[in-house]
Measured scan of single mutants.
Amino acid sequence: SPQLSSEIENLMSQGYSYQDIQKALVIAQNNIEMAKNILREFVSIS
């Protein structure tokens, strides 16, 4: 969805990798808010 694409772009601009974002979305069943929480908790931005 376009909204999801812009959310993904936004997260990538914050330093998350596309791969990590995709993984979080799978775990969160495409719930972007939950995916963000997963990324915040489990992915360290280098």
Rank of each mutant, 00 (worst) to 15 (best):
N37F: 03
Q29K: 12
E41G: 10
Q29H: 13
A35G: 06
E41S: 08
A35C: 07
L25A: 03
Q14H: 05
N30M: 07
G15S: 04
V43C: 08
E41C: 02
Q22F: 05
N30L: 01
D20P: 04
M12W: 05
E9I: 10
N30H: 11
S5E: 05
A35D: 07
E33Y: 05
I27E: 15
S5H: 04
I32Y: 03
I27C: 06
M12S: 06
L4I: 09
L25T: 01
N31Q: 09
M12V: 11
V26C: 13
Y18N: 14
N37G: 10
I21E: 01
V43R: 14
K36Q: 05
D20A: 07
N10R: 11
A24L: 00
I21V: 07
L11W: 07
M34G: 15
K36W: 00
R40I: 06
Q19H: 03
S5G: 04
I45P: 11
G15P: 02
M12H: 06
S17W: 02
Y18K: 11
A24E: 04
I21T: 02
I38W: 15
I8M: 05
K36F: 02
N30R: 02
L11P: 04
N31G: 02
E33P: 14
L11Y: 00
Y18S: 06
L4K: 06
N10D: 13
S44W: 01
Q3S: 14
L25S: 05
L39T: 04
Q19W: 10
S46K: 15
K23L: 11
S17T: 07
Q19T: 09
R40Y: 06
A24V: 05
V43P: 15
A28S: 14
L39Q: 03
A24F: 00
N31V: 00
V43W: 14
E41F: 01
M12P: 02
V26F: 04
S6H: 09
S44C: 04
E41M: 02
E7Y: 07
I45F: 08
L4M: 07
Q22N: 03
I38E: 14
L11D: 02
M34V: 12
N10Y: 11
D20R: 10
E7G: 06
L4C: 03
D20N: 08
I32C: 08
V26N: 10
P2T: 13
M12D: 03
I27W: 07
K23C: 05
E9T: 11
G15F: 00
Y18R: 12
I8Q: 02
E9N: 09
I8A: 08
I27V: 09
P2A: 08
E9K: 07
Q14L: 11
L4T: 09
Q19V: 10
I21R: 03
I8N: 06
Y18M: 12
A24G: 06
A28Q: 01
M12C: 13
E33A: 11
N10E: 13
R40S: 13
I27T: 14
L25F: 07
Q14W: 03
D20W: 02
D20H: 05
S1M: 01
R40Q: 12
V43Y: 14
E9Y: 03
S6P: 07
Y18T: 05
E7F: 08
Q14F: 13
S44T: 12
N30V: 00
Y18C: 01
I32R: 11
V43Q: 15
I27Q: 15
E41T: 11
V43I: 12
I27S: 14
P2L: 11
A28R: 04
Q3K: 09
S44A: 12
Q29G: 13
N31K: 14
E33F: 04
N10Q: 10
L25E: 01
K36D: 05
E7D: 12
S44Q: 10
E41H: 04
R40G: 12
A35N: 00
I38K: 13
L11N: 03
L25Y: 06
I21Q: 05
I21L: 01
N37Q: 08
